[in-house]
Structure formats: structure tokens, C-alpha cells
Design a protein around this nucleic acid. Structure first.
Lengths: 198, 198
DNA sequence: CAAATGCCTTACCAAGTGGTAAGATGACTA
DNA sequence: TAGTCATCTTACCACTTGGTAAGGCATTTG
């Protein structure tokens, strides 16, 4: 059954999201399922390879979602806005994946492979291209578009990942209010920036 | 000598920033210094307590820097902008601390203590208050100010923490260009949002 | 001078780490 | 029917984990 593999990947996603690569033991992953650690090793060979599969799963989904949004909106400006809102919704819908990607970002500080950075490079490039068209920036000032893209990615992902902290220090009710309004405020921010001087 | 303690804290900051709490062993920290693991335990008692001291160090510094900026600017709008630019500069200047705080954010997903969340709550509240004054929002819509604050914190911290990844996938030269322009773009974003409908 | 205290060491521990080796079981195939 | 293969097991392995115990040594304190 490929089902077992699937279950391992799911459990590993949760575990890696919660404790990062180094903080997660493969025994902890297998303990979440009715299999032994060696069953996991049988399917994936090593902890590294399991992690790679988890990462690939996530980046594939992200790229697919991005493509779907891009196909859906013809107007560049609407497309740009909806893309980030889509990324935000996606992040909120898969908080584990979002946390895992952020762990990865932090781990990249030491890791040499850089494989999954390249996984996400197409996404970054696509977003930057959109931003450049909207801001009417020449090639030489590509970094301005990149900056905007990263500001918005930060606004999306940092907030998503802060959910446990925020709902704890503000209380569940106040946090719910904040979260319910966040998407609208995200649109406001994007609109404000795009209207600015253009 | 209190010097040894200081050196342990410094080494621990680097280690925790790179691998997070769970990925860091106290032996790895002491190996970075000419002392044994037990010397570390003598000074701090446990890994948890060492971590708490590291966190306290960081949040103290952040609060102090925030106060300095607030005292320096009378105009609310300039104060708001300079505060976030100051946070950005501070993050860039202490990338280890920034990474550590983000690890903490991710770990909070499981940790019960929440101590350091409370450490940073005053900072969040101060920023929110500034935003509310600027956006002319009544109490009932505090979450709008909170959203803006978190968007900007995300723009600042997410970018800072992405340095290794970005400089790898874009190359050092391109990343340098992006980074050199980022502060200006941060100001642009803030200005755009504050001018929007007000 | 004696006692206490701070700083740091070696020695040790039970539990957990990623991973190998060697099957057991059952389904599919020659 | 015998052989192969995928799946999953128990048994191990050397190494690392956070932490305890106990003591050496120097400085401070009574």
C-alpha cells in the first residue's frame, strides 16, 4: 500500500513543522502511527530523504495554487492582489506547511543543499515579475519589486506563523477579530502601495 | 568571573539561533568554548534556564531600543516610521537574535510557558498604540492597527531571516542590491499605507 | 588558620539518536 | 511449486542527549 507512505509523510509534516528538522526524531514520527521506526526507514531510507519528500510535497502544492490563481485573473493588478491573498489563505489553511517552510528558512542558515530554496525560486521569480510590471520598473531596479514581494510575503507568513503566540497573549476572542480582519487589511496594504506614486 | 557566563550566553545565542531550542545541545554550546558541559550547567542549572537568560537578554535590548527611538521623535508619524526602521536596522544588526525570536515564535506552537511572549507583549502594545493614533481608529477597531503592526513586523523580520536563502538563490551581488534598497522600500510601504485614505 | 564558597573538572547514568542486519509474513510471478 | 519482492518486524549498534555526583583548586570570609 502506498497509503502507509502517505501517512508517514503527513505525520512527518506535522512533526517537522512543530519541532523543525533537528528537533524531530524519526521515532517520534513513527510513534504517531501504528508502525515502527524501521518501517519508516524502509519507505524513505533516511531522515533526510523523508524530509525532502515532505518539502517537495509542499512546494508542489504552492506552485500549483499559484498557477491556478494566475490563470484565473487577466488583469495584472487583480492578479497580483489575488495572488497574495491566495497565498495568505493557503498559509492559513495549511499552518503546518507554513511553519515548516519558516523552519526551513531558518535552517538554511547552515544547510548547504539549498534544494528547496530552488524549489521556491520559481515562485519568487513569478511574483517579482508581476510586481515589476505593476510598478513600471526597469530591469535595473528589479530589487524594488523584490523588496515589495518580500514585504508582502513577510506580512503573510509571519502573521500566520504567529497564531499560537498571538492567540495566547491577546486571548482567543481578540485574536479571532484580528484574524478575521487580516485579509482585508492585506488588501488595503497592497492597494496602498500600488497606488503610491503610480 | 562573570565573563564566563557572558561567553556562554553569547555562544548559546548563536547556537539557539541556528538550530532552535530542540536542535541545540548544551554540549554543542560548551564545545564552542574552552569549558565543559558541566561548567555550563554549573552556571545556569539547566538548558531551559540558559535559554531563558538568552531570551531575556534579547527582549531587554529590544525594549530599550524602542524606548530610545520613542524619546527621540516627537511627531507621531515620524516616530512610527522611525520605530519600524529602527527595528529593521536592529534586526539586521543582530541577525542571530532575529532568527532566535523566530524560532521561538515557531516553538510557541507547543510550549506552554509563554514567558517570552509576554516579554514582547509591551512592544506589541506600544506599536499598536502608535498605529491607532495614526490611523484615527476607535477602540473597537483596534485589530486594524494590530494588523498593520504585524504586517510591518513581518516585512522586517521575515526578510532579515531570509538572508542566507536569498543571498544563495540570487547571488551575493543581487542580494546586496536588494538589501541596500530594502530600508527605503520599507519607508515607502509605511508612507503609502499611512497616506491611504487619511 | 579553618571553613566556606565559587568555579570547573572527570566520571557516570538512563534514555534517546539515526541507522544496520536479519528475518517474518504474505502476495504476486516463473 | 518455488522464487522473488514489498512490507514490516525484533534485535542490535555506537553515539549523543540532559543531568547527577563528587571532588579538586583557588579565593574569600570567619
Amino acid at each position: 500500500m502506498t497509503d502507509t507512505r502517505e501517512r508517514f509523510i503527513e505525520a512527518a509534516t506535522t512533526a517537522f513543522a512543530e519541532r523543525g528538522f533537528y528537533g524531530t526524531s524519526i521515532a517520534a514520527v513513527s510513534d504517531a502511527l501504528p508502525f515502527t521506526k524501521q518501517a519508516l526507514l524502509h519507505h524513505f531510507g533516511s531522515k533526510e530523504k523523508l524530509y525532502a519528500e515532505v518539502m517537495k510535497r509542499i512546494s508542489d502544492r504552492l506552485m500549483q495554487e499559484l498557477d491556478e490563481i494566475r490563470d484565473q485573473y487577466a488583469d495584472p493588478r487583480a492578479c497580483f492582489e489575488e495572488t497574495f491573498v491566495g497565498l495568505y489563505r493557503s498559509a492559513q489553511q495549511h499552518p503546518n506547511d507554513t511553519a515548516l517552510l519558516m523552519h526551513e528558512l531558518l535552517d538554511n542558515r547552515r544547510r548547504a543543499e539549498a534544494s528547496k530554496s530552488w524549489y521556491l525560486k520559481p515562485l519568487l521569480d513569478a511574483l517579482t515579475e508581476m510586481a515589476m510590471a505593476l510598478l513600471a520598473i526597469r530591469i535595473r531596479q528589479k530589487h524594488i519589486a523584490q523588496a515589495l514581494v518580500y514585504q508582502l510575503l513577510g506580512a503573510v507568513n509571519y502573521f500566520t506563523v504567529s497564531e499560537p503566540t498571538l492567540s495566547r497573549i491577546f486571548g482567543k476572542a481578540d485574536y479571532a477579530r484580528l484574524r478575521n480582519g487580516y485579509e482585508k487589511e492585506l488588501r488595503t496594504l497592497i492597494a496602498a502601495r500600488l497606488d503610491f506614486g503610480g
